[in-house]
Nucleic acid binder design. Sequence first.
RNA 1: GCUGGUGUGGCUCAGUGGUAGAGCAGCGCAUUCGUAAUGCGCAGGCCGCCGGUUCGAAUCCGGCCACCAGCUCCA
Length: 635
Amino acid sequence: MVKVTLKDGSVREYSEGTTLAGVAASISGRLGREALVGKLDGKLVDLSTPLKKDASVEFYTFDDEEGRRVFRHSTSHVLAQAVQKLFPGIRLAIGPAIADGYYYDFDSPEKFTPEMLEKIESGMEAIIKADLPFERMDMERGRSLEFFDRAGENYKVELINDLPEDAAISCYRQGDFTDLCAGPHVPSTGRLKSVKLTSLAGAYWRGSEKNKMLQRVYGTSFPKKSMLEEHLARIEEAKKRDHRKLGAELDLFSIQDEGPGFPFFHPKGMALRNELENFWREEHHRRGYQEIRTPVILNRTMWERSGHWDHYKENMYFTKIDELDYAVKPMNCPGGMLVYKSRLHSYRDLPVRMGELGLVHRHELSGVLHGLMRVRCFTQDDAHIFMLPSQAKDEIIGVIDLVDYFYSVFGFKYRVELSTRPEKAMGSDEVWEMATSTLEDALQSKGMEYKVNEGDGAFYGPKIDFHLEDCLGRTWQCGTIQLDFQMPEKFDLTYVGEDGQKHRPVMIHRVVFGSIERFIGILTEHFAGAFPVWLAPVQARVLPITGRHVEYAQKVMERLDGEDIRVELDDRNEKVNYKIREAQGQKIPYMLVLGDREAENGTVAVRHRTAGDIGSMGLEEFVARIKDEIKTKKI
RNA sequence: GCUGGUGUGGCUCAGUGGUAGAGCAGCGCAUUCGUAAUGCGCAGGCCGCCGGUUCGAAUCCGGCCACCAGCUCCA
């Protein structure tokens, strides 16, 4: 007999050789049916694994992240099996589970089409119906190489060759299909129930554009059909929040064929944008920042000096003025350097915090453009902090606090990443080491959780990035803090120290919104276009019931306008229902319905876009209410 | 940039070789109405662009452009 310790701490005895599936079934009938995979002494394993000694055991179902991943990964094997059956000779690359599903990459001379996906899906359903068990086979390295080589699976051979010498190699077989795989898997294909192939895309082998492009099939799967349907409905719902769609519907901005990646801001988009910038200026002023503005075009010499000419050329736009080379700025920092350099600085002045809402242009590949999220010109809410090396940590913490405060005002959750030295970088390893550990130190003293992205830093320094989510859960980098020892060197920046000698300051580059454009995209999707009152392009719309109420409506509008409330009057010859419907569609926070009663008493009947009719109140009472919401930036 | 898909009035979409359609929006007229669509009428389209095939092209072929999804890359 062996002793098994379960998740709740209880201990049960089983005869040696009992499988985990048996253990699950003995705990409860439901767990026996729903368990997908087990954890034996901390390691995820198949349910078919037998008990050999005393152990701790846990089980995972589709309700757990681990269970879902195994479930989707197993589905990807079924996808590969269906594809190989339909198109013999296609070679397999990799097929992992991803956030909401899985994919499999194939190398095939034949191009997949959407019609083929349907056939593949039917093939998968047949395999699921056959309820084939997933069988694990541990293989000796040489044998596995021989096996996949004989099958012509050159990608699998490459994968095996790249595994460390002592790595255990395993394959999984279901029916007549065998794939290289570490596992674990669900017990049999019948568990997979409801599958759907969602899209088709190209993907480079091992993610490098130097390699061959393979065909990637994306899909998802669920243990119940109703769950799949819910999932698809959720995606449809999320698409309604897409900032590109809402941007057009709410008339915030447009991107036209005449300028791919160069957005046009319309009056309503500008109202929102100006609020963000006002907020930004107020907060930065409060925190000791000064504001500057630097030119969009500067000459070649300067870009050579900054390192951009060498390290950033592919992303820059160029022009000639009087036969000389100039570049359009892709970053604001060099301009900031020149401003710092324009006069002497004493150590007493440091830190100097210099902000700039700077318009930068970057050449992005056509395929990556995405509404306001990824554009070719955008405004960074930039700032450069010049300081003594000893001030670095506190300044970084100050920026972390600033970012956290800003995002909390909008109700955003964010993720933090730390990016380290890239391949193409300026400066010595020691300096990079020091900069990176300073950033890490600051993060740790704030007790922040973060992920490390090796090699993702800027060419002049490591960075802390803040990521926000869009409507489909894709994340976008917004805020960033970069510590830079290179630029001050390149530009020979100095300050006069206590000793009367010149010393080298260090600097921070940082943005909070990141790009105002991207931030507006994220905001739009986050609020589904129903912006908080302080940001709403139109804060109230006045709706006279009939023509005879227009005069009073005008008076109400003027009163609100006098308080700098963004207000519109809908004096069209339409029924109130129609006007309300339209104002709701525009997601205007407050609608003021005005008829005989209101005109007579000097009141307004207030309708809120989510709460609905909230009754009549005096005009002044309404003014006080909306002004308070604006002032407190109520979400 | 790469792979696949899409491109028809302001918007959403029909239209598979033979005279370009609908709904919504817009405009006009009537209606003067109390919390999510009043009725009638009128306008509006080099069918993304260029070229080819054909007696004839929105429709078939080629090239280009833009957009969508993904890859690579980044705020």
